[in-house]
């Protein structure tokens, strides 16, 4: 097997609950939240890896770790075999061009006081990707056309565009550096459904055209199912199940994945009354002992309450972190 383009190995990120002078004087230091806890993800070139989970499960933190906006507490992010944390200044500049990100909120992801031209030119200028102003202009026109906008739009301000159009601009900015790896953090969550389909189609087209590799993050299982080749399900900072998309959605193994699939409202089930998952996502400040899902799990036993399950292959292409599955109970 060839080496993956992106390799998140044993990635953890902890946050101190408060910072500044107060904690310095407090005994025992600050309380720590494990937002991301030993996550392993490998993504091959041209592949789309979907990361799904409820709010606060740590998926956005994984996105920020993967692009190098945050440094991991433990573990490493390797891009094309280079560790982001130990890369030198020059390597890092080169890596930055190859890794880009599309953000969730099309309103806060661009400076409202800048014209579209300035917004798209910022990466080109910072990374010295254009040799002359004329070339930069040509490149901006080309990028706007690529995402379905018109070159004349570059003279406008963000507020003159709808949410969907802004997300197109955001994609144009991300593509300006000719990246290989694109992290998409809930790129369509803030959009209306009819616009969502436009953006998802555009992203698939661009992926085919430029051989892009995606880390696609969403809370929407249907969107993940549509976009991803492989899927990881996150719960309280850990990946509880990881499998090829088709297998995950047709034969989910982890009780959490099963319940998640059961709770998604579905157009095809008119008038259907579903059995909702009981309980709530626990507070990550005080996570449950053992398996983090055990308080909501119908199959939990004593072992689940005490011992944290590690993620293992089930022999059929699924990795799952569940004692029940590993013991053959579920």
């Amino acid at each position: 097997m060839t080496a993956p383009l992106i390799d998140l190995a044993g990635l953890s990120r902890h946050f101190a609950l408060s910072s500044g002078l107060n904690t310095r004087f407090r005994k025992g230091g600050a309380k720590v939240v494990r937002a991301v806890d030993s996550v392993d993800i490998e993504i091959a070139r041209g592949e789309t890896f979907g990361l799904v989970g409820e709010s606060g499960c740590g998926k956005s933190t994984v996105a920020r770790l993967a692009v190098g906006l945050m440094r991991p507490t433990e573990g490493a992010v390797r891009f094309d075999r280079v560790d982001l944390a130990s890369a030198g200044r020059r390597d890092l500049a080169a890596l930055r061009r190859r890794i880009q990100m599309v953000f969730q909120d099309p309103y806060s992801s661009m400076n409202a006081r800048w014209r579209i031209r300035e917004i798209i030119a910022e990466p080109l200028r910072t990374l010295n990707l254009c040799s002359s102003p004329a070339e930069m202009d040509r490149r901006i026109d080309e990028l706007l056309t690529l995402v379905g906008l018109s070159p004349a739009d570059k003279r406008k301000y963000p507020h003159e565009f709808s949410g969907g159009q802004r997300q197109r601009i955001s994609i144009a900015r991300a593509l300006s550096t000719n990246p290989e790896f694109l992290v998409c953090d809930e790129p369509t969550s803030a959009l209306d459904v009819s616009v969502q389909s436009q953006i998802l189609n555009l992203m698939k087209d661009l992926q085919a055209e430029f051989d892009l590799t995606f880390l696609f993050i969403s809370h929407n299982l249907a969107v993940i199912s549509h976009m991803a080749d492989r899927v990881g399900v996150m719960y309280l900072g850990r990946i509880v199940e990881q499998a090829p998309a088709q297998r995950l959605f047709s034969a989910p193994r982890h009780p959490y994945t099963k319940l998640l699939l059961e709770t998604v409202p579905d157009l095809n089930r008119i008038g259907y009354t579903r059995k909702p998952m009981s309980g709530e996502v626990p507070n990550p400040i005080n996570p449950p002992s053992g398996c983090p899902f055990h308080p909501r799990c119908a199959f939990a036993n004593d072992r689940c309450k005490q011992e944290r399950p590690s993620i293992r292959a089930d022999g059929q292409g699924t990795l799952v972190a569940c004692h029940g599955v590993q013991e053959g109970r579920i």
């Binding site: 709808s162 209306d192 009819s194 389909s197 436009q198 698939k204 299982l221 249907a222 549509h226």
Partner: peptide, 21 residues
Amino acid sequence: MASIPAIGETRDRLYQIDGSM
């Protein structure tokens, strides 16, 4: 209706209404 993705479907592209409201 046609632009809403569904779990487990195998469409490669979603139907899209061009433009915006």
